[in-house]
Design a binder for these strands. Structure first.
Length: 229
DNA sequence: GCGACAG
DNA sequence: ATCTTGTCGC
């Protein structure tokens, strides 16, 4: 497992972090469809924390988009680089997540993040930020609607409804299993919303959350226990 | 001013 | 995110 330190010039205050978001937001690419769903490779990234020891562990797991078999995986350990502030999550997770992605032996393909992309107070969530810094196509799949509103989608898997910031559709509430709480999909970088939802459905044949997220989540928890004990 | 608020 | 075992249900 590789170790990372907090990057030089990393924001130290909320004001600095918001300024970085406002600047990097200009570089997000929203007019590409992205890789075709159900083909190539998809990578899940996630992090686990030990706030007592100020440690964060990130995992990146590459899956075959068709079989969902694990093609490669990597982990990285770092220091917590920012407190948790709603809207500034990326500053807490990105350095370690990027180190895990760098440690992969193969290209990640589409990256699926735990959280938001466009669905963000300044339209620049974790998935957008990671996409801009890596150049990779990214999407965000979150478990909660954050501050946004939506109407309950149909009860069947595949049903969706707009995730709204006022009248702007910033993402979609997507039902990935019959009768189960939807997930909240938004675009990150170089993928359109229709494809982001199609990828999410392709990754949820059995469970509410994408296989990518599930695999990355269990790996980073395992790695945290190992790094901590 | 107060409360809500991805992980 | 994290604290946390068994248990109810398909």
């Amino acid at each position: 497992m590789t170790t990372v330190s907090i990057p030089a010039g990393w924001p130290a205050t909320e004001e600095q972090a918001r300024a970085v978001q406002d600047e990097l937001r200009e570089r997000v690419v929203l007019d590409e469809p992205g890789p075709p769903p159900g083909t190539g490779r998809v990578t899940g990234v996630d992090v686990a924390y030990d706030d007592e020891r100020d440690v964060v562990v990130a995992a990146a797991v590459v899956l075959d988009a068709v079989t969902h078999e694990v093609v490669a995986e990597a982990t990285a350990v770092g220091r917590v680089s920012f407190p948790y502030v709603p809207g500034l999550l990326a500053f807490r997770e990105i350095p370690t997540v990027m180190a895990a992605l760098d440690a992969l032996p193969c290209p990640p393909g589409l990256v699926v993040c735990d959280g938001y992309g466009l669905a963000h107070p300044r339209r620049f969530g974790l998935a957008s930020h990671l996409g801009v810094l890596t150049g990779l196509p990214t999407i965000g799949v979150a478990k909660n609607p954050f501050t946004f509103s939506y109407e309950e989608p149909g009860v069947r898997r595949g049903s969706a409804s707009p995730l709204l910031a006022g009248t702007d559709e910033v993402g979609r509430a997507l039902r990935t299993q019959d009768g189960i709480k939807p997930v909240f999909v938004s675009v990150g970088h170089r993928v359109d919303l229709g494809n982001a939802c199609a990828h999410t459905l392709a990754l949820t044949p059995k469970y509410r959350l994408p296989e990518t997220t599930r695999r990355a989540d269990s790996l980073c928890r395992r790695a945290l226990r190992q790094a901590t004990s």
